[in-house]
Design a protein around this nucleic acid. Sequence first.
DNA 1: GGTTAGCACTCATGATTAAAGAGTGCTAAC
DNA 2: GTTAGCACTCTTTAATCATGAGTGCTAACC
Lengths: 351, 351
Amino acid sequence: MDDKRERKLKILNSIIRDYIETAEPIGSRTIAKKYNLGISAATIRNEMSDLEEMGLLIQPHTSAGRIPSQKAYRLYVDELMKISNLNQGLKNEIRDGYSQYVEEIDKAIKHTAKVIAQLTSYTSIVSLPEMDTLNCKHVQLVPIEDERVLMVVVTKENIIKNYELKLSKKVNDSELNKLSNILNHIVKGSAFENIGKDLTQKINDLTLKENELLQEVVPLFKEILLNRKKNSVYSNGVTNILNYPEFFDIVKAKGFLDIIEKKNKIAEVLNQVSKGSLNIVIGSENTVSEFKECSLITATYSLNGKNIGSIGVVGPVRMNYDYVVSVMNFLSSELNKQLNKEEKAKGDDIG
Amino acid sequence: MDDKRERKLKILNSIIRDYIETAEPIGSRTIAKKYNLGISAATIRNEMSDLEEMGLLIQPHTSAGRIPSQKAYRLYVDELMKISNLNQGLKNEIRDGYSQYVEEIDKAIKHTAKVIAQLTSYTSIVSLPEMDTLNCKHVQLVPIEDERVLMVVVTKENIIKNYELKLSKKVNDSELNKLSNILNHIVKGSAFENIGKDLTQKINDLTLKENELLQEVVPLFKEILLNRKKNSVYSNGVTNILNYPEFFDIVKAKGFLDIIEKKNKIAEVLNQVSKGSLNIVIGSENTVSEFKECSLITATYSLNGKNIGSIGVVGPVRMNYDYVVSVMNFLSSELNKQLNKEEKAKGDDIG
DNA sequence: GGTTAGCACTCATGATTAAAGAGTGCTAAC
DNA sequence: GTTAGCACTCTTTAATCATGAGTGCTAACC
């Protein structure tokens, strides 16, 4: 009985591999000729009929061969595919590519996105870490004009962010400088997610004449850091998708391009990624309807063991899962190493 | 003799207008029926034959009607088209749309790009002002890590830019603060293009213990402001182009999308725009080969009478020139007004 | 009983052909 | 100079047909 299943899966495997490569339905005769499985076309035909009954194959029309169903891809991904390793030369090349981004997390992540898109020839999407997952290293207020002030935030992870504030009154340069120093002193070293708790109290402990202004900055600070999120995503290789027949239809192509532009939709997709190794979402398994004709392979990256963002690949359902998985496996582990290495180096530096 | 030319142009005008609308070749009979020019199809036929001889019409094949040549579009743009005015309601709406961007030149320009893309349904491209065309209001050095320093520059035009510097040695916060103050004092108010001349001298006049570091920052300052340019462009409505039959071919579509991504190519196109009112470049008139199947309508914007950037529209050669010109006329004048208004307000404020 | 050869049947695909229709150019009449 | 008429061209569309890939079933085979 197990032997039977074995053979069916072998055939299914051939069909899926073939379809991923050619995007064309395949028939029993062709399978028999192309992949020598040691059985005749007629036998394959019988098995294919069974596989169709099991919901694993689909016949586009009576005489067109069969293509894998989504269920088949799921089975393939879960049981059948053999994940290979990238060759060592490529691995080294990728590793070297990171060298210049060691100290800047955002750039390292964008670089990862670029590499993924290049290697896979699909479209990569990544989320950049939200501020509330990071730690504050330095805050600086810079005057723009009258009551408009720029707040520059440098995180411990060397991410730099600018935020504009509007105070209630005009502040001159030296006042602002003083304010900046005080604020910096207070928030320096805190995790942003704790700033809510910490900050208000710390300020209350102080009794300074700048207190009034400070009181004003704090809620702005909090609001900005916590509300301006869920949209920091980045994509690469968007037009790669136009190379696949699935998207030769201009309407579908436009649909895809438009959805990739929608940062909030991409963020939604990337936020669903659960921690752990790789997530594979196939076609209609996608909860975001715009991706129902795509497959997604995503992974998370973390800092200090805390999950702070995701990287992913979007491609046609007929995706080269083996290869993409091997790419993502290597790149996500490599990215995590890079981030940790940085952490470690810094730790060494301080300690 | 002039009457004859007149009639030919009338026919040509009808053909061009029709082709812009339908993207289909048009024949004499159809013209006679659709546009009542008071002459018969046969007469139109003769005239069309003449127009073809003059290089203004093209026959895709013997029995397919005719389409305008690029020469025809050029003639149309130069002599034939009637530029209408946008209706007052729309104008007001556009004006109102600027209100929130009054104080920030970059945002106002990006907003303009968005409005252009929306109104025209083509793709808009704009160049953002290069630093060397602007004036320095404030410089602030912010510590990142060890010898790495962030330089935040605020221009008089309220553009905010971040640059990373790498100094030769580690600088602590208070040193950096002092350095920042001195630097700020020196460069405040200067036009960036003069910083080369001014700065070195001003520093030589000073004899401070910070002089050494200062000497180091200056060349970095100059290099950054002058070399990091020609790539600050922005586009909007890229996928709009996929709505036009000229780009239904996936290869052409991909070509277009890819070229819009190439910031340097876009910058090249936008830098060629000569000052003055509107520039119209039709098809193969384009020196940048990738745009040989597109038309471009561009305009410049200026600050204090100095040309500091361009805005433009890219569309198929079969572009709705009248309308796009009217849109661009209004938007470029409006953008210039916004920029000048800001300048004025600031002048009042200071004086 | 599973496997396979053989065969009739289905149906998309591609080629071929035919008809339709839009348009042209020319001629002759107005 | 203008226009009606007409023959001719050539694309487009539909229709017809042959091809071939593929299926499912049956019967023979091991």
